[in-house]
Amino acid sequence: MSKQPPADPEIPGATGSPCAYRDTASPRLLYAVRHGQSTINAGLRPATPTEADDMVVELTDLGVRQSVALGRWAAALPAGQLPEIVLCSPYRRAARTWQLAEAELRAAGVALPCRMTDPRLYDRFRGTLAHIPVSEVRERYPEQYAAEQADPLGYRPPGGESFLDVADRVRGVLDRIAADTRHHRVLIVAHDAVILLLRRLLEHLDDTATLAVADRGLAGNASVTAWAREADDYRLLYYDHREHLPRT
Rank of each mutant, 00 (worst) to 15 (best):
M1T: 11
S2P: 15
Q4R: 15
Q4C: 13
P6C: 01
P9E: 04
I11K: 11
G13C: 04
S17W: 08
A20F: 00
Y21H: 14
S26Q: 15
L29V: 14
A32T: 08
A32H: 09
V33R: 04
Q37L: 08
Q37G: 07
Q37M: 14
T39Y: 06
T39K: 04
I40V: 14
A42V: 12
R45S: 15
P46R: 04
P46Y: 01
A47H: 06
T48P: 00
E51C: 00
D53F: 04
D53P: 00
M55P: 03
E58K: 06
T60P: 08
R65N: 03
V68W: 03
A69M: 06
G71P: 09
W73R: 12
W73Y: 15
L77K: 06
G80H: 08
G80M: 02
Q81W: 07
L82K: 11
I85Y: 00
V86H: 02
V86L: 04
P90V: 01
R96S: 09
T97W: 06
W98D: 04
W98Q: 08
E102Q: 13
A103E: 09
E104H: 01
L105G: 02
A107S: 09
A108H: 02
A108R: 05
G109K: 05
A111R: 11
L112V: 05
P113Q: 06
C114L: 02
R115D: 04
M116D: 11
R120E: 02
R120Y: 04
D123T: 04
R126A: 10
G127P: 08
T128P: 00
T128D: 14
I132C: 11
P133G: 12
V137A: 14
V137C: 14
R138V: 14
Q144Y: 08
A147H: 07
E148I: 05
E148V: 08
L153N: 07
L153R: 01
L153V: 05
Y155D: 02
Y155Q: 03
P157Y: 12
P158S: 06
G160S: 10
L164C: 07
L164A: 08
D165E: 10
D165I: 03
D165R: 01
D165T: 06
A167W: 09
D168C: 11
R169E: 06
G172Y: 06
V173G: 00
R176A: 15
D180G: 07
D180K: 14
H183C: 15
H184N: 10
R185E: 00
L187F: 06
L196V: 09
R200P: 06
E203H: 02
T210P: 05
A219Q: 08
A219N: 06
G220T: 11
S223W: 05
A226E: 13
A228N: 14
E230I: 07
D232K: 10
D232T: 14
H244N: 12
L245S: 09
P246N: 10
